[in-house]
Structures are given as C-alpha cells and as structure tokens.
Amino acid sequence: MNGFENLLHIYDFIRPFLDIGVMAFILYKAYEIIVKTNALQIIKAAIVVAMAYAVALLLHLSMLLWVLQKLAPGLVVCFAIVFQPELRKVFLKLGQSQWFTFGNRSRHTYVDTVIIAAEMLSKMKRGMLVVFTRHTKIDDIIETGTRLDADLSSALLVTIFGHDTPLHDAACVVQNGKIIAAGCFLPLSEQYDIKKTFGTRHRAALGMSEISDAVVLVVSEESGAVSLAYDSQLHYDLNPNQITKQLEKLLEMTPAQKTIEDTIDENKGLY
C-alpha cells in the first residue's frame, strides 16, 4: 500500500509538468498547421468577433450582446462557408501530419539530376514542373497523367519538357528516384493574393503545396526563373545553391546519399 501511495505522490508531483508538456506539444503542432495552411485569417476573424463580444460585455451593451448571442449559430455556419478553403487545408494537414516526427525521415535522391535539367530548361526558356512526393499520397494526381515508372535522368526530363510533346505542359511526379508519371494535372492555388504575373505553372505548383506536403520545383517559361513551392508558399527565383540546400533539407538527403547518386549518374552518362 505504501508503494502505491508513493507512486501517487510521484504522479501528483510530475502531473503539472506533464500537463504543461502535453499542452506545449499540442500548441506547437497547432502553430505548425496554422503557418503551413495560411489559416491565420480564421484566427483574425475569430479574434474580431471575440473582441466585439468582450466590449459589449464590459460596457453592458445589452442590444449588441443580444444580437451576438442570436447570431452565434449563424456565425459558425458563415465561418465554415467563408473560410471553407482554409478549413479544408487545415484538416488535410491535420490528416497528413506526422505528430511524433519533428523532421521528414524519408530519403529521396537525384536532386542534382533535376536541378541540372532545370538549369538547361531555364536557359532554353522552357517551362518545367516536377513534384517531389513526401508523406502525402497523391495517387489521384498521378492518375491524371501517363504512367512511366522510369529511372530519373536529366536527359529524360529535358526530353519531356524541352520539346512540344503531349506531356510537356503538365507535371512530372518523382518518387524514390523514379519518374512515376508525367503529364499530371495539378490543382490551381486558391490563394486570392497571389501575384497576377504568375502563370498557370506557378499557380499549379502553389496549389499542389496547399493540398499536400509535396515539394514542387517550377521553371518559368517567360523568365527562366527556377522556384520551389512547399507548405503553401512559393519561393520565387532561387539560385541553384539555394534550391539544392532547400531540397536536401526538405527531402532529408544526406551527403553520403548524394555521393552515391552522383556515382550512379556518372555511370549512366547523364548530363
């Protein structure tokens, strides 16, 4: 009995720390989801309504309190309708989140191969879209294109995007060092404040990053700028070093793996 009581005393002692730790973890993950889905607008709208209610309560504005109380159910429905795209992204991110993982542990290869092709296409002023998959399954996107299951190479990418083939206007999906499919159609971004100068490729790249955790590399046909889209954000006109570092960080490629893939590329006689 004394042993059980001791355990209870120990639990009572650590319970506040456990409570704070769990709450901090939930808040951290919630912050990650909010940042990655641009759901800040929902929070701002909720704060405005809460402030209006607080002012009415503090100043005893009975009419405003009555109106807010009567409109409360309708406001919830309005929130769901007005912020439907943002709420959809939140639940998508919630479903695909790796809750007990603070970094992507999957290993992807052939980053240099894609960057070499991107530089070549950039000089040729040819557009390019390459989707690097991570955790989220995108089978529905893959099904919109043509299955290839081909080894990834700079030559193949330049062939697909460098000429007016039936596949050059859409995206390639890369997974585990292979081009799974080409000619895949991506959803366009739902962001209303995107620059009007961005064309369909950039909107598609951003749209893909909004519904999944994929990383999308895009080459502009007009300017030749090479950009990356991930976590609902577009990072425009990056140089090769920036792209390499970001891709290796996002796809968690180690230097040793990079050396191995360079050896494979040399043996295959890639560009």
Rank of each mutant, 00 (worst) to 15 (best):
E5G: 03
L7H: 08
H9C: 07
I10S: 12
F13Q: 08
F13R: 05
P16N: 06
D19M: 07
I20T: 07
F25S: 09
L27M: 07
E32T: 12
E32D: 15
V35L: 12
K36T: 05
T37Y: 09
T37K: 15
N38Y: 08
A39S: 15
I42P: 05
I47R: 05
V48D: 04
V55M: 11
L58C: 04
L61Q: 10
L61A: 14
L68G: 10
L68E: 09
A72E: 07
F79A: 12
A80E: 12
V82D: 04
F83T: 02
F83L: 04
E86W: 07
L87C: 02
L87M: 11
V90F: 15
L94V: 10
G95Y: 03
F100G: 05
T101L: 15
G103A: 07
R105Y: 10
R107P: 04
T109L: 12
T109V: 05
T109Q: 07
Y110V: 01
I115R: 01
A118G: 04
S122N: 04
K123L: 10
M124T: 06
R126F: 04
G127F: 02
T133K: 15
R134K: 15
H135F: 06
D140A: 09
I142E: 10
T146E: 15
L148V: 13
D149L: 09
D149K: 08
D151H: 14
D151S: 13
A155R: 06
V158P: 00
F161T: 00
T165N: 14
P166Q: 08
L167V: 13
H168L: 03
V173K: 02
V174K: 03
N176Y: 02
N176C: 03
K178S: 12
L186Y: 00
L188R: 08
Q191P: 01
D193F: 09
T200R: 01
H202L: 07
L206Y: 00
L206F: 02
E210T: 04
S212K: 03
A214Y: 01
A214W: 01
V226T: 12
A229W: 03
H235V: 09
P240G: 00
P240E: 00
N241Q: 14
N241G: 11
N241T: 09
Q246W: 09
L247Q: 02
L251N: 02
L251S: 05
K258C: 13
T259W: 05
T259V: 09
E261H: 07
T263G: 11
I264Y: 00
I264D: 08
D265K: 07
N267C: 14
L270E: 15
